[in-house]
Design a protein around this nucleic acid. Structure first.
Lengths: 190, 190
DNA sequence: ATTTTCATGTAATCTGTTACATGATTAC
DNA sequence: GTAATCATGTAACAGATTACATGAAAAT
């Protein structure tokens, strides 16, 4: 009884949205769950084979565009119940942010260059914030914001994605401004 | 010229706060940078050896409590400049949150149990929020909030940590409330 | 004509976790 | 006396990234 990895559960979650090929899943792993969970196709293909071996997904082979057959995966009852058991278990926190790590060591580098870097982070976050805000609105218009809607999960993920970008934007902009103050020389003692 | 891993840079960052043993670094890797970067001692010891081999840290061996010598590491000029070059480079985003992944699949599980789980997450975040708020105040009282203070990095990390917990708290509480509504049956159509 | 998209796989490498292993000193 | 803290290491395994490899069809 090979236990399922977190990536396996991520794939099962994606397959609750409907059958898909490994290729499809690689793309779906970007929006919106990809804002919080990433995987390359080289990781996805072997994992799908494992899930199929465990009976959590069914495979249908058809003609492919390239030299190999195209495989469409469908979640099975076993897959659904395995997923349902895993979901309410207390999830692990997994930090690890290079953005924040660099802030920890911020005074070990040139403040002007660090200010530039954090300003870029702030700008990118602001852009994402705008895009995702529009996406969230579209989802709400489609009724995804109702907790019983089958795509409520997409809505919930985008919602925290939005808030995370807002926090990143505000924090990075603050940090960039503080660093620019150091550069300009007047430190503004309070 | 073996290039330094992200963990290596994390250790160099910690060593800018002063010399330390691998054991010390394992503990320092918890507060506050540990809120955003974690590592076990089994990963830290070999990495310190690599940094020493590359000349980024100096080692001083002394009497240890156990069968082996106690090694105290100090960052070198080479270590400082390597760190300073890495810092302004655009950092990689590394998502990967089990908490959010589970939200993506939230309607594949029992809503009552999921509501409980997210309520726990919300409660834990609220607790951390309180603790970290107090810590941030202590830091500000010590002058860490000035960008030229050698421990400004600690302050900056704690600041985003706080905001992240706030967002997690609000989002998880919202999600738990929505799920409880599903359980109680009246969905409140808008 | 060339690039992008569709589609699947493997190999080598790197990163990270869990478990094993040792032993002195200090606090309860 | 027992548990926690100090202190360092290795081995086995699991998870993830980068690069290699193939090839048709559609779009530019």
């Amino acid at each position: 009884m090979a236990s399922v990895s977190t990536l396996g559960y991520a794939l099962l979650s994606l397959l609750t949205r409907g059958p898909a090929t490994g290729y499809d899943l690689t793309r779906r792993m970007r929006e919106p769950i990809g804002y919080f969970w990433v995987a390359q196709h080289s990781q996805i293909y072997p994992e799908l084979a494992r899930l199929a071996g465990a009976g959590h997904v069914d495979v249908h082979e058809g003609d492919g565009p390239g030299p190999r057959a195209k495989k469409t995966y469908t979640i099975t009852e076993s897959g659904r119940s395995t997923l349902a058991e895993w979901l309410p278990e207390p999830p692990a926190f997994q930090p690890r942010s290079e953005v924040v790590l660099k802030a920890y060591a911020v005074n070990s580098a040139d403040p002007a260059r660090m200010a530039e870097m954090y300003q870029s982070i702030a700008d990118e976050a602001a852009e994402r914030l705008q895009t995702w805000r529009a996406e969230l609105k579209t989802m709400a218009d489609q009724g995804f914001h109702h907790p019983s809607h089958p795509r409520f999960g997409n809505y919930a993920v985008l919602k925290i994605g939005l808030e995370s970008q807002r926090v990143t934007h505000e924090w990075a902009a603050w940090l960039a401004a503080e660093l620019r103050e150091v550069v300009s020389g007047h430190d503004g003692a309070d």
